[in-house]
Design a protein around this nucleic acid. Structure first.
Lengths: 191, 191, 191, 191
DNA sequence: TCCTAATCGAGACGGTACGTCTGGTCTTGAG
DNA sequence: CTCAAGACCAGACGTACCGTCTCGATTAGGA
């Protein structure tokens, strides 16, 4: 029952595949990436890629997240409004940057492949939700926010507009937009 | 200067192509649709399809919107909360129905092809925004809503969470969700 | 029972089709000619061409022979050898000229379409055979040739080598070749 | 400098392609053969065919010559007339047989594609010329033939009439024709 | 030191769809 | 009835990737 027989997997090969995948993604976009292209650029056989990943989406995803350091500073200024401004602002900056815009295509591809969707949910969205949850909970404890709010729903309301503009309307997101968004959500639309 | 030279375009052919495209879309999903498949089912030559549409996305889109009667009743109950409940509830029902779920894939495809995005924006989203704008404007006139709100932003905040769940988190949308969403947005999160 | 109903066939149209066909043949070769190309250049509808000719081969053939004045001077010098030298030499000059080389392709096409073969046989080969037959018959009458020869066979023997080189070996044909050919055929190979 | 990298070419695949090409050629003629048809019958991908051959002509040609055992018995009876009777007779039998008649179409296609022409020249015609050259040289050595004849020209004169009838006039070739042909060429047409 | 088993490159292969092209037919309305 | 315009079906073209497969050449640890 020896598990270590045979030639071990080459870490270098893996790295070069992920690098190639990421480069091709950022150069030409998700659709233009092909397994053959990755293999060629990485100096690797197609079979090797298929050995370790089920398909193009998986390699590209992994390449993307391996290359993308997701800095997530946890704001804690003592004010919900301030914290959210920082947190939402950071996300907004990220998703309008070149790296962030690739997320657009990955979400697009995720509509056709549940594995992709799972990947970016667990890698990208869930970690951020945890931070947001912390911000809101502190706000409740400090008495800034109502005690009866559904935190998950609140997070949806706060962040959804960013992706709505990104994925659907294509409208731009500037600082004023972020400020107005948070103010409106906190204060409500009614008098 | 006679514009009516030559054999006129066959409306029947056009219809059968769009029908075939829509059927294949609903049976197998966007990715599985092929021009060859459409041509075969419609009993039409591939060349005819390429004559009139630049590619698969365009045919499928047009087939989808031709087949989808977008009922958009305009609610006007005298209460913003009521009107929004109806309007957001209708949309929610639609996008969780089989027909509506195809929108998911179309938006996904729209991330790779701006023409698709333009299509569903102008055909699907813009008409709905007009209705929502009406609801909110009446709310302002009646004094239910603050006078200083940015209506476009408000619409984003109200509808974005639906698509956020649909496209990204995959969380379900029930009636309670809709109610809580509208209440939160109207009242705000603060005490 | 009026036979002259409707618009009469336009001779001009016919002419422009044949001209276009011939031009395209000489510019790009038989294979590159298409009915669509002829129609475009002649400013004519494809249907019109199909109305009057069964297919591309027929139009091109007719265009070729309409444009090619087949000068066939009938040599009668009083000597079989002289007459043949002129007759075979003329043919050789013709089939190695640009116009003549098209014959090559027409014969090639004739291998796939019996109608083409019939056309060039009756238009090109039979008329020439008549002349050759005259030459040989006069030779027999003058006692230059044996009385028992099969004239048809003799014609084959005299002319076949030209086409053999043209169609199969690709070897060149100069004056010496023609002279030697006729001499050999007349004298025989034996001592 | 290792030449044996990668999966080796499958001989079986190659064989099935050539067989399919030959079968389709003999069933329907050269023009009706398509790469798609060959691929389908051979149970092979089109890409594989294009990998190894530049186009239909090349595959069909190779399939034809692979399937056609070109028996070329070398006659040596001690008499030029006898030897030629056998040699020309053999060729005549071959080119009027079903297999041989396909040559007709290949030569036809050769008028449009020099690669085809090269192929049948080197595979079919040159080997036969060598034999004929041997026959004639022996005839000269034995004193049956004149010493000053141009052997290449003589071969043309002897064989060209067969192809002239085959490709151009369509006239039949029986035994008497062969006999008369050889007699005439050997004796000459003059008294 | 050799053995064993897995990994890796190269690249052939069957498939499938692409978007283009031409052939030949059909449908208008004008002449 | 003829014709130009041009839509239409049919089907092959040659290309691009897919995902699988066969090779032979490595590359370890264990015998």
């Amino acid at each position: 029952m020896n598990k270590k027989l045979g030639r071990p997997r080459s870490e270098e090969t893996k790295k070069s595949i992920l690098t190639a995948a990421y480069e091709l993604l950022s150069e030409n976009g998700f659709n233009a990436v092909t397994i053959e292209g990755i293999a060629a650029r990485a100096g690797v056989s197609k079979a090797t890629i298929y050995k370790w990943w089920p398909g193009k989406a998986a390699v590209v995803l992994e390449g993307y997240f391996a290359a993308t350091q997701l800095l997530m500073p946890i704001p804690d200024t003592g004010s919900v409004a301030e914290d959210l401004l920082i947190q939402v602002g950071n996300l907004s900056s990220f998703i309008t940057s070149p790296k962030g815009k690739m997320i657009t295509e990955l979400i697009g591809a995720g509509q056709f492949d549940a594995r992709i969707a799972n990947e970016y949910r667990s890698r990208f969205f869930i970690p951020r939700r945890l931070i947001s949850r912390g911000i809101l909970e502190r706000g409740i404890q400090r008495g800034e926010l109502r005690e009866d709010i559904d935190i998950e729903l609140a997070i949806d309301i706060l962040f959804a507009p960013l992706f709505y503009r990104l994925l659907i309307t294509g409208d731009p997101m500037d600082n004023d937009f972020i400020k107005a968004l948070i103010q409106d959500v906190l204060k409500g639309l009614t008098r």
